[in-house]
Design a binder for these strands. Structure first.
Lengths: 148, 148
DNA sequence: CAGTATCCAGTGTGATACTG
DNA sequence: CAGTATCACACTGGATACTG
């Protein structure tokens, strides 16, 4: 979700993403690009999970986060760098031996929890309804297959 | 973002997802699976875009949505089916010639707009700050490369 | 400890062509 | 019009091994 190359300015479209489609998307749905920017952040489960962890614990070291989330070193490293770049987390490097690096939320990162909470609340309230809907849908489909 | 197979019950882990990692993730971060369920919905840009479009226009036909969003037929078809299955959109088929299918939001789908709004508001307020942070970060990085 | 580099499988998504 | 089927390809993200 993160590297939506085709959304970035000046990026050439790689084969498979035709120019027409992109232009159409931006032309017709002006808010789409902005919405996509939000989604590129909130849609990335590791970003969200890291923000939540840091919000709960305050300060965490690299390997603490890793153990906490069951994330691979690679993704943790990449995601933390992005979050730091976006001004969502602080990175503090202690040049000791062995090295020690601490991560915490910036005010911006903390403010992100609010909209996240709304989403979580909605999910809590409505996931059961969704599960029911799915069950109905799947049963419907099954009976149709039978009669066919 | 949608098919998080490894989150579904009874799904066998495909190669590349070691059992250890998954268990660790679920063991240490109890909320993760729930959070991921939300993300699997909100993290899908097409789902969100479709919900927003339908919220704005009330009722839309297949090709109206297609033109509106610049989405491919394939993705529109797949996403609409998922949304219908989740009880977020109504599908009304008119067996005329040529056929006509109308899509609209269910109450559940409408209720989803609220948390979405919170997110959008946050984005509107903070994307400039993020852009600034990125610029700072990138300039910093550039100057470090120079001195090295 | 805190990363970086490399490799590779799985998944998402667009293009294209076909159907009722 | 409203899809479905098939193909191709970029990107995600885990595993593994190496470094300071």
């Amino acid at each position: 979700m993160r590297n939506r190359k085709w959304l970035q300015e000046g990026t050439f479209l790689s084969p498979g993403y035709t120019e027409g489609t992109v232009l159409k998307a931006e032309g017709k749905c002006k808010d789409c690009s902005r919405i996509n920017e939000v989604l590129s952040r909130v849609g990335d489960r590791w970003s969200v999970l890291i923000v939540i962890s840091l919000a709960n614990y305050g300060i965490l070291r690299f390997n603490e986060l890793k153990r906490n989330l069951g994330i691979s070193q690679r993704m943790l490293s990449l995601t933390l760098r992005e979050l730091e770049r976006d001004g969502m987390v602080n990175r503090t490097y202690h040049p000791t031996i062995p090295p020690k690096v601490e991560y915490s939320l910036t005010p911006l990162g903390k403010s992100f929890r609010e909209p996240l909470k709304g989403l979580g609340q909605w999910a809590l309230n409505n996931l059961p309804a969704i599960d029911q809907a799915r069950q109905r849908y799947d049963e419907q489909e099954a009976s149709e297959r039978q009669s066919a």
